[in-house]
Amino acid sequence: MITIQNISKSFGSLQVLKNLDLDLKQGGKITAILGPNGSGKTTLIKSILGMVLPDAGSITFEGGAIKGKWAYRNRIDYLPQIARFPENLTVHELLKMVQDLRGGKPQAEHLIERFALKPFLHKRLGTLSGGTRQKVNIVQALMYDSPVLILDEPTNGLDPVALLELKSLLDEERKNGKLILITTHIMSFVEQMADEVVFLLEGKVHFRGNQQQLKERYNAASLEHAIAAILKEEPLEISANGHSKTKARLIFSTS
């Protein structure tokens, strides 16, 4: 469905993606894209959506190159990391706007019900709490029935009830055969939800496989330990400002 070939991307002197290859063909599973800060997770996702334009390499979606195209985004649902919307629009107007832009018939009703957003429908977005805005964000992202779902930090600010709803929703979408990409820093969420883990390190795919394989390879009891083991094993290029080329070893306590 999505084929990423040899893409590279630099911001100034900081190279975020380095000849990255990734093939995401099979629907019906949840793939978690993990990696330390600055490893290129968000850049990768944004490249798929055409928000970041790679310096080299190609991305194809359902067989067609995405460069310079925009209509393909009708087949992708996206949940942005930060839920900030125009302050003076109401929730209802925002959903209407997304519908206006995308066309078709969204199924928002059941989502509004599941996330208990009905009392907020005619409230201005600027007056909502962070958690409620994130629920609105989830509704706008999931109200369409697109074959690909990309979620950037979906658990941000959600209360336990909403988190459970989100998990059951993602389960349903997985059963519906959708290709679901998630980035998150919440390892317990990954452990519960992800069928596959793609671990990015220094702009490349360092590991790809299921959770069991990851744990076995690094001889770790949990996902967190496995990731700590990867970071211990790999000397990281510390480049907070993107200029330093000095190699340093990141030390994690895994006890």
Binding site: M51, R84, L101
Partner: peptide, 17 residues
């Protein structure tokens, strides 16, 4: 600047930049 994050949502929609 205020609508920077919202613009990202718009950019992910099937609309020309």
């Amino acid at each position: 600047y205020n609508s920077r994050e919202f613009t990202e949502l718009l950019l992910a929609q099937p609309v020309r930049r």
